[in-house]
Design a protein around this nucleic acid. Structure first.
Lengths: 226, 226, 226, 226
DNA sequence: CATGAATGAGCTTTCATTCAT
DNA sequence: CATGAATGAAAGCTCATTCAT
């Protein structure tokens, strides 16, 4: 906002860097980490720049060297948080197996991750600011949650093509499976009604029921699993 | 404080003589309405008491006559919002019909309501403060969302008893149906990724798919509907 | 916060490199001076932090860098005021002379000081808050007024030991002399009934009468003075 | 301030009343009593009109019927407090006896009263506001403390005329005696350094020493007492 | 006359941001 | 580049006072 045109031009030439000359990527990460801890604990508004600086172990001024303001810092934090989350997710999904094995694995990985404390907290923060910063929410969903659904859609389409599943609306089916996997878990976690992360057993039972119902509906020969 | 029991009894018998706590319920509602508009637009933290007063058309001081502080006002607002929401919901659910008719009606009513602009906004606000005011989130879910599920459970149990459905875990089944109804809608709405309320057609298709899948899994004779 | 002991030691050795706690003692003094002027004029409650900031020539926020709040600022102000007052006092008391000379000098110094405008104003403020901040009043007296009395007691005890005075209760005698010195002056000043500081002549007459009476009662050979 | 001329004229006709037609002197006293309790506990500034209304058991509005504002109420309170105090005092002073008996009685009555909790609190309040409301302090001293001194002066003059005392400056002598009576007590009480009212024994010893010293200096035959 | 709900100015304090060092 | 003291706008809240009932 206060950078001159020359600096802007420079920045545009190398957008992959996002760092001005002389800036330290480690310090940037350190600030984001501190901000993540404070903001997930207190929320965006209630977390002051002072709090963030203290938690990150840098001075207030330094934050303004790396970010143009609190909102910018927050946007970058959400960007980074989302990317980290979904990269971890995708890494776990691409493994071989038959239909029900792969659906179970997908469901368990997604549910375990999305219901974990840090991810629930990130969701709370993100949803909380969506009204005021709509683009953030949109991008979070678009480059986040939707990516998981697309991954699943791609897989389902392959199974449909192979004749092992019969699905008219693959996108809807993917959404259905996604929601079934977290039925009774994610929403309660979001509202704090379920205080602790779900146990492995709770996850397993939920996913089992999800896959069973999904294959019952879309599977060729009925969905006996496990 | 100094009135004896007799006087208290008197006061209760003739409430028209002296308003409860000497306050004007209409003004109280007016404040809550203004607060609801501002807070759902800006969020709890970003909405200042000044903003609320201006929107409600009262002075700042007046707010403190009716509420002990901003947080108290917020709690009452959430309480009132939730109660209004779920009373409207419950009123629409109890009508006759066969299984698929009743599930479709339930699904449509719930989805239409929960994906509506005001309810989505209320959810955003509520989820946004859950980290800092956990009891509020818990109560919102407990006396809100859960109530809808319980209503559904009661109905499902009746159908199971009547031998028309076969469900081992009714609570899980209710959660599954609930989530299926909003698959691809609610979450996108929450993040602003779907800007407008879903059309009646979108709702109908989603609910149709939900009921079909549900009856496919739990119905006695398979779930052909409509 | 993150500096090790070695660094701390370094910092202490070269205080010009980094100010203690990173703050500027001159600015701190400037704030206290401004606060002193405003508070002695308006009293603690009526002097707003805004007033103090304006008078001190700093911004409101700066005050909260140096003090944790208005009350803290006030406590420090009283502490500093008292210390300055009584250090000035004590510096003037220890000079040689015979009994009546020394008592006269003690009386004149104390009376002139305690009846001066700034000290009277400080007393008004201090007494005014004593009900709500009892510890402040106690400490003010304990480390202030009492110190003057103790100084006098020490001297009187020496004269008693030397056989030049006969006093059974030295503490009471010191209090008596103290009050005699300000008879008709201090209380009137406190209530504003005497608008201007007493003249040197008024002081001289009062002190003369005080010493005469004191030596008449406790002196060995009667109290002829001057 | 907002009363019309007619009402003003009425009020001027009967200034001894200070009550407009229809006002209840008992309620006025009730308000002053409540104000006295709250203000002596919290100080003038910190005591809100709300607090006073609650303590007095009247509504806020009623206070503005009897007084033109908080400051007016306070002035009347100080007026009333002072009058009550000194009327009680004077009532106890005019009894027969020889010189030392009468001085002892005078001293004990004055000291006991002035060092009592309510009077100390009133002094704190009065002194605390003297800077901002100088006339109040002046009048408090003028119609209060000075009255006691004048009473004493009158008595001393009589004794001088009778040849039983030798005093050049009766006013100064009266002040001296006054201060001697409270030496080591009043000031400590004012600052809260002496928490409880002085015991009868403490008073007796202080007064004894005061009278002894006073008669030693001004008495014809030396001041052997008791 | 008595009431207390309503007012909005003003309170203490915190905030994101700047900038001299 | 890193720092944190300085800023002043704005926060939540309380106040003395008014006025319809």
């Amino acid at each position: 906002m206060h950078s001159n045109d020359y600096e802007r031009a420079e920045a545009c030439k190398e957008p992959h860097l996002r760092l001005a000359a002389g800036q330290d990527p480690a310090k940037r990460a350190q600030i984001l980490a501190g901000a993540g801890r404070v903001i997930s604990r207190m929320g965006y508004d209630a977390a002051s720049v002072n709090d963030i600086a203290r938690e990150a172990g840098v001075s207030k001024g330094t934050i303004y060297v790396y970010f143009s303001g609190k909102e910018d810092l927050f946007e970058e934090l959400m960007e980074e948080t989302r990317e980290r989350l979904f990269q971890e997710l995708e890494a776990e999904l691409d493994r071989p197996g038959d239909i029900s094995e792969r659906l179970v694995r997908y469901g368990e990985v997604v549910t375990r991750k999305l219901c974990s404390d840090p991810v629930i907290r990130a969701h709370r923060v993100m949803i909380g600011v969506t009204e005021r910063m709509p683009e953030l929410g949109i991008r979070f969903y678009d480059r986040g949650g939707r990516r998981g659904t697309i991954l699943l859609m791609t897989y389902l389409e392959a199974e449909v093509a192979a004749g092992r599943l019969v699905i008219e609306d693959v996108q809807l089916a993917a959404s259905q499976f996604f929601e079934l996997c977290m039925a009774g878990l994610f929403r309660r976690r979001l509202f704090g009604h379920m205080a602790a992360e779900p146990t492995e057993d709770e996850i397993a039972r939920t996913i089992h029921a999800a896959v069973e119902m999904f294959l019952c509906r879309y599977g060729k020969a009925g969905g006996a699993i496990g």
